[in-house]
Every structure is written in C-alpha cells, then in structure tokens.
Amino acid sequence: MTPETSPLELSLPDVPRSTSADGHDLLFPDRHRYHDVVAAHREAGFEMLADLTAVDYLGHPGRALPEGVAPERFELVVMLLSLAHVHRVRIRVQVPEDAAEVPSLWDLYRGAEAMEREAYDMYGITFTGHPDLTRILMPEDWEGHPLRKDFGVGRVPVQFKHAPGPR
C-alpha cells in the first residue's frame, strides 16, 4: 500500500477545528451535529472507527479549545481512521453533565457497539439508538460510573495499618 498522505479536508465550515500535538486533525462539533459530522467523514472515506472513549474533565484546570467551543464536563473522543488515505481524525464532542446524551454511531460503524457500551458503563453517557446499551465491564447491579472523577478510588483494608489516606 502506498501511503498517499493527502489530508481529507472536509468542507464543514462551521465546525471548529485545530491540529493536535501529535499531528492529527481535531474537530469539535456540537453534540447535536456530531452524528452528521461522523457520517460525512464516513462518506469521505474514513472506513474505520478506530476508537471511541470519553473523558471526565471535572477538576481539570482548563484545556485548550478553539474559539466557539464551550467546555463541558464530559468529552466524547472519537478516533476515525482512513485506510485508503492513511489519515487519522479525532472528533471531540462536549457533553454536558445534565444532558449526557449523544446519538449512537452504531448505524454508521458496527464496531461502535462495544466501545459505546464501555463509555456508558464508565461515564454514564447515554447513546441514543444503541441497540444494547448495558454495562459491559462492571456487574449489572453496580452503582455509579467508575471512571467519573467524583467516583472514589476505594482501598483494600489492611490489617495493622491504621494510617488513613487515598492509597
């Protein structure tokens, strides 16, 4: 395969964009337009959803976002990969805490199934349109979403050691 590194510049004029430190294109669509933006990328030749995860920015001192993007507590991070053009794009979507709901990518990429379940399990972000949005790693009766920043770490009680502390 000859790598022809022509960046796929999609004409999405009102989606804020920048370039990350690792040289990937970054896109910051609104969570209502997120599905359309991903669909446009799929049309343009991004065959694979490489990864989908989330970040809880609670307590973060402040991150660099392009103009016009208001920071929210959660951020959904989607890595798209074009095999034909050997190109990666990262889509970061701001998800507010009180309405942690985004459309599922399952209708575009079947591979989103387990990844979205993991993001739901760990962060409590709901993916509308996902066919089977259940916990995947934690037990079904688990309360809370463990990777949230306000979810305690917990510790194993140690005999003869009374020093309190996080670890």
Partner: peptide, 23 residues
C-alpha cells in the same frame, strides 16, 4: 497539559493509548 493518541501494532492489532494531561 495536552492530549495525544498514539497507536502501535501489537501482535493482536492496533494498540492505542489516548492520554490527557492536566500538567
């Protein structure tokens, strides 16, 4: 502070690491 995604080819496929730093 920043965020990166790095991927390598592990024996099983694309092994990626997405890391966010707050400084």
């Amino acid at each position: 502070e920043g965020e990166v995604y790095v991927a390598i080819e592990s024996p099983r496929g694309e092994l990626g690491c997405y890391m966010v730093s707050d400084g």
